[in-house]
Nucleic acid binder design. Sequence first.
DNA 1: GCTTGTCGTGAAAGCGCTTTCGTGTCAGGC
DNA 2: GCCTGACACGAAAGCGCTTTCACGACAAGC
Lengths: 343, 343
Amino acid sequence: MSRRQQDRVTIYEVAKRSGSSISTVSRVINGDPAVRQDNRERVLRAISELGFVPSGAARGLSRRSTGILGFVFLREEYHATRPEDPEWPGYLDVAMRAAEREAERSGYSLLLSGVRPGDEATVTALTGRVDGLMLMDEVLDEEALDRLAERFPAVWFAGRAGARTTVVRADQDAGVRALAEHLLDGPHRFTDVVAIVGPEAVSDHAARRRALEQVSAARDVRVRLWTVEPGSSGAAGAVATRLAAEPTPEVIICVNDEVAIGTVTALRERGLRVPADVAVTGFDDVWIARYVDPPLTTVRQPVTDLAAQAVRSLVRRLDGDSTDGPIVLPTQLVVRRSCGCVP
Amino acid sequence: MSRRQQDRVTIYEVAKRSGSSISTVSRVINGDPAVRQDNRERVLRAISELGFVPSGAARGLSRRSTGILGFVFLREEYHATRPEDPEWPGYLDVAMRAAEREAERSGYSLLLSGVRPGDEATVTALTGRVDGLMLMDEVLDEEALDRLAERFPAVWFAGRAGARTTVVRADQDAGVRALAEHLLDGPHRFTDVVAIVGPEAVSDHAARRRALEQVSAARDVRVRLWTVEPGSSGAAGAVATRLAAEPTPEVIICVNDEVAIGTVTALRERGLRVPADVAVTGFDDVWIARYVDPPLTTVRQPVTDLAAQAVRSLVRRLDGDSTDGPIVLPTQLVVRRSCGCVP
DNA sequence: GCTTGTCGTGAAAGCGCTTTCGTGTCAGGC
DNA sequence: GCCTGACACGAAAGCGCTTTCACGACAAGC
């Protein structure tokens, strides 16, 4: 435990050097106008000569606020499958960057914390180091989350509709509906469809699946459900197995773009062309979706906006405004080549 | 400034409730074995009954250490070009996630901070809130960085070889060499080559360019240099302009994978096939490199390992070990279809 | 029986800021 | 000339922890 900081310059030394009191130095640091001009200048000079930087810890202790927001996400075990697989940044990273950006605009910093699902202890501990918490996806179950949010400012990103905690999410339902209607009612009128779904426990995935089932049921189309771990490059393998065992569908609706890419790979390896033989769709519209072959038909989620809204909601709450209700942002169907509807 | 935390439970209340002193409570929190078993249990019970979470600020102040590492990166202005462009996660995000992971393993958290190039003030201010700093790419110029590193634990990620500050970087030189030799000496023996380079100010880019020039000079091959902003989706546009104005080369060596993808798009729009008409190569081997059409020949950087090493080096330094020398990790040529050497 | 040493605990002094409160100074009003 | 009020500033009291130091209890050694 020798994690000591250097011998820092403190406010006392600045006070001594500038011939004033620490109160005055503190006022200067914080831009209090009630300091005479000449005094202010003397203090500022001393600060820069000594290279003084105020201690965040001391300030935090005194103000009872750290100026830090926590960003809590599920720590995926990447390397799992194939060690030569490069990492796989996506949706989560975009949210992270956007959240940091918005936090900075509001005068906060963002502290990252990856946790295993259900690791309430780690999240609770974070509570002592940040002013507010933004929890991604299914970091905690809903009960634990409510327990937390009751005593601490928190928002749930991509959470379940109807949760007690403030939720910021995209309109999965409308997105899936638009996609499904395009596929079932559009030029192709697909009737033989497979949906690759993610774990039921993930709110977004559950919402997508529910919406899909509603649309298909209304049209009397039966949808075969295949379950895979989303985002794992193992998707290709899992899909290959199912393809070998079952009749090939006309279209495969994937839970997200990564899985869609894996699916395309698996189809190709079986000698099937996309979209000529099988149509494929993704979800999220990650950046690569337009660059892969074929470019993916998908549903765009406004991840950047969502993250910004989540942060703003949190900041409002910290500024004393009352808690927001759920925030729902629209999704948008993006038709590209993989569904076979455009040349 | 009403960013107040709730009325937190403090160590005093735990002490009172458990019938001991705050010293004992502190010892229990920190796992000091010199507390009798029965006492420890009483304290733990009080802690959980009250929902006590120690204040990071108070602890930080007392210990003179925050347990936080800062991750400083260049804040790119994404939205710039086309608002409908989804975000573009990549190299930086992978580094971020890996750094967080490794930091957590060492008992630290990671604080994100995006800054504009040369924004020394922001970086300096960070110094008051974290125990150590990891600076990506060209956040500060070398002089400012040395000034900082002199008084504060810092490592420079992807920095310039030979810098005074501890640098963690990949062996750009060897990677470029392997790639260039493959292209110039391999099956195709290209002689008409264009290199799309990034800004000279970025160490990694400068290193790549230098290495390329050495290899080509040794073979008497002249390389035309085209400069673009790396990572911007504007690459396609910039390349299109050059293609219209100059003779089409046999191969285009791109400064990174994103630019390579943009370049492929630009070539296609001119009706040129890749790699049949023009070969294209990338750099980094981001995850998508293998999924785009055609899969990219590129040079893999061990970003995850680099980030982990950077964090470990920082932690060693914080633990009192002396400063590390430069850490250089190998790169690896990955030959895929875009260079036309494999079917 | 006394001394010595070990063990477990509590008192109290910080850590480096912010902020309240009180005081001295000076301008303006009578 | 004195009183009042505004204005700048400093003293000092926290903020909630960690850690040193001293002390009491008790076991072991002679």
